[in-house]
């Protein structure tokens, strides 16, 4: 019951964004995806969520081939992603933003509303429920984005730089939110993140990309000690 990319490659013209990359996320696991800018991290998330079709290789969910299906099909199968920029519907209220995901799964409005409010309460956003999404602060917007993603009852949650632009305290709050998602919902979570302190303390396992290829994969302490990773990416800041 895992989500796996098997030997995927993607090229954009002459640029190789992913080159023969394999990676698997298990349920209940938090997997960090790190690497310098241009290493192919977002491309890999795009592939894992159906937004980009790999030129070679396959995506499997619990053994079922998903390659070539549309993003909506990935979402219905339980693979949900966030974007670097949270894309809330700004013309809808905060609650309605979460309800969209719920009615998309076939719930009626009343039930969707009840569950949306419960999710917003989990993320400490209940007081914002009736306000337009455009009124939220940056940190609140991030949490509302997570609440909306959870409305889809993901089996796997792919987060593209969830802490980007957050202050230290907000990042800490986000980390707690992610860990509580794992605890409550038991989903596998993949996190692209540049904040090394956050990645090291949050993730069970870390996968390192460089120039589109896998450089290393292992527990945080192994990654921290890996000489290839230090040269390619972490440099002196890893100490």
């Amino acid at each position: 019951m895992e989500l796996a990319a098997e030997r995927v490659s993607v090229r954009f013209g002459g640029l190789v964004a992913n080159d023969d990359v394999s990676l698997a996320i298990a349920p209940g696991e938090v997997l960090g995806l790190i690497g310098p800018n241009g290493a192919g991290k977002t491309t890999l998330v795009n592939i894992l969520s159906g937004f980009q079709r790999p030129h070679a290789g396959a995506i499997r969910l619990a053994g079922t081939e998903m390659t070539g299906r549309k993003p909506g099909a990935f979402a219905r199968a339980g693979i949900v992603r966030s974007f670097q920029a949270v894309r809330l519907f700004r013309g809808l209220t905060v609650s309605e933003n979460v309800e969209v995901g719920l009615v998309g799964r076939g719930l009626g409005r009343a039930e969707a509303r009840r569950r949306a409010l419960a999710l917003l309460a989990d993320f400490d956003l209940l007081h914002r429920a009736a306000q337009p999404a455009s009124a939220l602060s940056y940190g609140e917007e991030r949490r509302a984005g997570l609440a909306r993603a959870l409305a889809l009852e993901p089996r796997f949650l792919l987060l593209d730089e969830p802490a980007a632009g957050l202050a230290a305290a907000e990042a800490e709050e986000l980390k707690r939110a992610i860990l509580s998602i794992r605890e409550r919902h038991g989903c596998g979570i993949l996190v692209i993140e540049h904040n090394m302190a956050l990645v090291m303390s949050l993730c069970d396992r870390i996968h390192v990309l460089g120039g589109g290829r896998t450089i290393a994969s292992g527990r945080p302490d192994e990654i921290r000690a890996d000489p290839a990773v230090r040269t390619a990416y972490l440099g002196s800041t890893a100490a």
């Binding site: 909506g72 809808l92 969209v100 009615v103």
Partner: peptide, 25 residues
Amino acid sequence: STRLGLEMRAAAENFRMAEVLGIRA
């Protein structure tokens, strides 16, 4: 107030995102 109405407003603002959230186009 209706389910389809909410789906329509979401789709009107950002169609691809609405599809990702499971709205049937």
